[in-house]
Simulated scan of single mutants.
Amino acid sequence: MSDHLMCCRIVSCLMIMWLISDSGAASCPEPPPVDNSIFIAKEAEGQLWGTYLCTKGYHLVGPDSFWCNDSKEWDASTPECRLGHCPGPVLANGESNSSGPVNVREKVTFKCDDHYILKGSNWSECLGDHTWEPPLPICKSRDCDPPGYPEHGYFDGGAFTSGSVVTYFCKERYHLVGQRELRCLDGEWSGQVPACERNPEAPTPAGQIAFEKALHAFQERKDLCSATKSFLKRLEESGLTVDELKSSLEMKKAELKAKIVQHHS
Rank of each mutant, 00 (worst) to 15 (best):
I260P: 09
W74K: 12
S96K: 07
K233A: 15
S124E: 04
S238D: 00
D22W: 05
L224I: 13
D22E: 13
E151L: 10
E188G: 12
Y149C: 01
A210H: 03
I138H: 06
G128L: 06
Q219Y: 11
E80S: 02
E106K: 02
Q262H: 14
D22G: 09
S98C: 06
G153W: 06
G88E: 15
K259W: 13
V177M: 09
H263Q: 12
H115L: 06
S164K: 08
G187H: 06
Q262K: 15
D22S: 15
R180I: 12
F66R: 02
F66V: 08
T55A: 03
A258R: 15
W18G: 04
L249T: 07
G157A: 04
L232V: 08
K229T: 11
S2V: 08
G128R: 14
H264M: 10
N36H: 15
G24Y: 05
G178Q: 09
S2G: 11
C112T: 08
W132V: 06
G191Q: 08
G94L: 08
R221P: 06
V102K: 09
G163L: 14
P150G: 03
R173T: 01
M17P: 11
R142Y: 02
H263E: 13
C28R: 04
A254C: 11
L235Y: 02
D64G: 14
D113S: 07
E45T: 01
P29F: 10
C112G: 01
G207R: 02
C81M: 01
S248D: 00
H115V: 11
P101K: 09
Q192L: 10
C112R: 02
G24K: 13
H263I: 06
K246G: 02
A159T: 14
F39H: 05
Q47P: 01
K246F: 09
P134W: 05
H59L: 13
E125A: 03
E188N: 12
E151W: 06
R234A: 14
P33V: 00
P137E: 03
P203K: 00
K257T: 11
Y154L: 04
C86Y: 06
Y58I: 05
C8Q: 15
P147E: 02
L48Y: 04
P87M: 12
K119S: 14
S71I: 04
